[in-house]
């Protein structure tokens, strides 16, 4: 067995939902301060893996070990595609404040210490300018910052983000990645971030969890994103092509059976710079 000194250890975790195997003996560990990309096509089990780590999904076998034991207190979580209702009266600073004490009883009183913490967090993610605005009326990138601040204000040791780069424009994607990288260093925090396109993460991430067919290949990016490793993972021949600092992963049948391959792995075949 692997050493348990890491912040997060996913130990041979399998998950089946309604008879379908979603995750198959996924096994990896993240050490403190790792900035890790969880890469895989749509439907490859990224969200299920994150939800299993959070404890929302019980694995059929294997287990998840969080350093320190108390799971939710240690983890910050930014869910996928949250739609904040513009009809809810709530400012950005209220949402961030709820990240601190949303589970506590009683009204949120305007304590000076709480306000200072919220202000600092807003500033850290660059959300000061829209702190007083209604969350439902923020742009996609602004909502993402608000949610990151919400997740970070309790200083978790592990931050999980589910597709934080989807639905963002190219400039916001770059800004979000560099923001997360900076916060990870600043707060000495481990980050696991899921995305279907690894390219925006290439400059930032120092390890990768690559999901395909419910199985995972993990390690340093340059060790995992290689033809023979991914071919073994996908169970068929896969080419990894590096052009202009970008990586394209192309499955074998791309030429003759294009439709099936695009379906399985669309983002990796069609790359629009």
């Amino acid at each position: 067995m692997r050493e348990e000194s890491g912040v997060l250890a996913v130990q041979r975790v399998s998950v089946s939902l309604s008879g379908r195997r979603i995750l198959d003996e996924v096994d990896f560990a993240l050490h403190g301060g790792a900035f890790c990309g969880l890469i895989g096509a749509n439907g490859s089990g990224k969200t299920t893996l994150l939800r299993t780590i959070l404890g929302f999904v019980t694995p059929t076998s294997g287990r998840v070990v969080i350093d320190g034991g108390r799971r939710l207190a240690q983890i910050g979580y930014v869910p996928q595609k949250i739609v904040l209702d513009p009809a809810i009266p709530m400012r950005t600073r209220d949402l961030v404040g709820l990240g601190l004490d949303g589970h506590r009883l009683g009204l949120p009183l305007a304590a000076r210490a709480r306000r200072r913490l919220v202000d600092a967090m807003l500033e850290a993610v660059g959300a000061t300018s829209f702190a007083e605005q209604r969350v439902g009326e923020l742009s996609g990138g602004e909502q993402q910052r608000a949610l990151i601040a919400h997740a970070l204000i309790r200083r978790p040791r592990l931050l999980l983000l589910d597709e934080p780069l989807a639905n963002l424009d190219i400039r916001s994607i770059a800004a979000t990645v560099s923001l997360l990288r900076r916060l990870a260093l600043e707060y000495r925090m481990t980050v696991l971030l899921s995305t279907h396109d690894m390219n925006p993460l290439l400059p930032a991430m120092d390890c990768i969890v690559y999901l395909a067919n419910g199985r995972a290949a993990t390690g340093r990016t340059e060790d995992v994103v290689r033809g023979e490793v991914l071919s073994r993972l996908f169970g068929e021949h896969v080419d990894v092509i590096r052009v202009h600092g970008r990586i394209l992963v192309i499955a074998a049948g791309a030429g003759n059976g294009a439709s099936t391959d695009i379906e399985r792995n669309p983002e990796h075949v069609v790359q629009v710079p």
Partner: peptide, 12 residues
């Protein structure tokens, strides 16, 4: 139950 489980994450 089967139907709810078929949509992981959306049930709650």
């Amino acid at each position: 139950k089967v139907r709810a489980a078929a949509r992981p994450g959306k049930g709650s």
